[in-house]
């Protein structure tokens, strides 16, 4: 075998194992989706069924037997609400910091990131009492506020990095034309930063959607999100596997797609900007 042939074979073997890894990692998701299309009896069949006649029964029954749409709506409201609130707070700040960095800008950003590293359980009791005493316990509002605050540091950092990439010359040119600061933001910066803001929002929505600690601790029925709803299926063992799978499939599908779209921001956001 020549060197070239050996390289080709090495490459083929690597590709083979790459596919093995991909199939293994994806398998639990595939299995979950598949189970969502089984009847309850098929779902717990021994041995497990790979081939069967698929049914849509679970998906149609979810809403009759459970309050799926309520929880889905709660998830949508809290994750979009939290993201929107975080963006509203972060856009002006990140803008000011990126275009007028001062002596403390870097320290402020680092400090913000450090608040993200506080363990939630460390402030469990205070937040719990504050929510109870303010009447916000088990409301969507409390989750919106908390989601905005826990994602604010990451949103700030990514937006800051985006704004910094906008060439300053463009701003100077518009200033020469006598544009006011407000119009400068609206007409010059926003169109350029729009893509960055959208993908930052996408990352924030993903993180809010999958958040499980606060939604379990701070809600009971009214404001429960999908993460908390799914957690409530923990008790009856061996029951409703098909239905839980259908719920899980619906709950995860949009976010997995968002995740594929926001890979780049995810790398930046999840590493606090250390890997780009």
């Amino acid at each position: 075998m020549t060197d070239k042939q050996r390289d080709i074979w090495k490459n083929r073997i690597a590709v083979f194992f790459a596919w093995v890894a991909a199939l293994l990692f994806f398998f639990p998701i595939f299995w979950m989706v598949l189970t969502g299309f089984k009847t309850e009896n098929q779902a717990i069949a021994i041995p497990p069924l790979l081939f069967f006649e698929p049914t849509l029964e679970n998906f149609t029954e979810i809403n009759e037997r459970t309050n799926y749409s309520k929880f889905a709506l709660n998830s949508i409201i809290t994750s979009f609400g939290g993201t929107l609130l975080a963006l509203l707070i972060a856009i002006p700040s990140a803008y000011a910091m990126a275009f007028n960095p001062g002596r403390w800008t870097k320290d402020i950003l680092m400090w913000m990131l450090s608040t993200k590293m506080l363990p939630a359980v460390g402030v469990l009791m205070p937040i719990y009492f504050l929510a109870q005493n303010s009447g916000l316990y088990d409301t969507k509002a409390v989750l919106v506020i908390i989601y905005a605050m826990i994602n604010l540091p990451i949103v700030m950092l990514i937006l800051f990095n985006y704004f910094r990439e906008i060439p300053k010359e463009i701003l100077e040119a518009s200033r020469m034309d006598g544009t006011s600061t407000f119009n400068e933001i609206r007409q010059v910066v926003m169109p350029l930063a729009w893509g960055g803001i959208a993908s930052t929002a996408l990352l924030s929505i993903i993180l809010c959607w999958n958040e499980a600690f606060w939604s379990i601790v701070l809600t009971t029925t009214d404001a429960s999100t999908l993460t908390a709803f799914v957690a409530s299926f923990q008790a009856p063992e061996g029951l409703f596997w098909a239905k839980v799978s259908a719920v899980s499939t619906l709950a995860c599908a949009p976010i997995v797609v968002f995740g594929w779209l926001a890979q780049k921001q995810l790398v930046q956001g999840m590493t606090f900007g250390a890997v780009k």
């Binding site: 998701i29 908390a228 709950a251 997995v256």
Partner: peptide, 13 residues
Amino acid sequence: VMLISPFFIMPTV
């Protein structure tokens, strides 16, 4: 895409 998907599944699911 198959390799990174598990990261987007909510922890309770």
